[in-house]
Amino acid sequence: MDYLNIPPAQRRKVNQLITIVKSLKKRCGVPNKIFFKVSREHQDDPKKTSSRKEQLKYLYKSLKSEDEKHLMKELDELNGHELSNDKVYLYFLQKGTLHLFW
């Protein structure tokens, strides 16, 4: 178990799984296959993550110039799927300027 690089919460689950498998081996013999499912723990207060579009709108709230306001209109025309492209997202994050570094 020491060689596995997993978080402590997951390590406890793996340890529990190992003890269950050992007890099953004692009672039923060695199984051919073992399937297990690890589900996420229930969160009482899950934090909502903000989308890229919401993050950009928050950044653009204080824009003053007409060029920057034009970016806000351009951003409103996009759907969330188009902003999943990193190049498009970086374009808006850099206020409409392309910084090419290659």
Rank of each mutant, 00 (worst) to 15 (best):
Y3C: 06
Y3K: 12
N5F: 09
N5T: 11
P8M: 09
A9C: 08
A9Y: 11
Q10I: 13
R11V: 00
R11Q: 12
R11Y: 10
R12E: 14
K13N: 10
V14H: 07
V14R: 08
Q16E: 09
L17V: 01
L17Y: 02
L17M: 06
I18F: 04
I20N: 00
K22F: 00
K22R: 07
S23W: 00
R27Q: 11
R27L: 08
C28S: 10
G29I: 10
G29Y: 08
K33M: 11
K33N: 13
K33E: 14
K33S: 14
I34L: 02
F36Q: 00
F36I: 01
F36V: 04
K37W: 01
V38M: 07
V38E: 06
V38Q: 04
V38F: 08
R40D: 06
R40S: 06
H42T: 14
H42D: 13
D44V: 12
D45M: 04
K47D: 13
K48G: 07
T49H: 14
S50L: 15
R52W: 12
R52M: 14
K53V: 05
K53G: 06
K53A: 03
E54A: 15
E54M: 13
Q55S: 15
Q55A: 15
K57D: 00
K57W: 05
Y58N: 08
Y58D: 10
L59A: 15
Y60G: 02
K61L: 11
K61P: 01
K64G: 01
K64R: 14
S65T: 15
S65L: 09
S65W: 05
E66T: 10
E68K: 13
E68P: 02
K69P: 01
K69T: 05
H70I: 08
M72Q: 04
M72K: 02
K73Q: 10
E74K: 14
L75E: 04
L75V: 05
L75R: 03
E77A: 15
E77V: 08
L78N: 05
L78R: 11
L78H: 11
N79V: 02
G80F: 01
H81S: 12
H81L: 10
E82H: 06
E82V: 03
E82I: 02
L83M: 10
L83K: 05
S84L: 02
N85W: 00
D86V: 00
D86T: 02
K87S: 11
K87G: 03
Y89R: 00
L90Y: 09
L90V: 07
Y91W: 09
F92H: 03
F92E: 01
Q94K: 13
Q94E: 10
Q94T: 02
L100D: 03
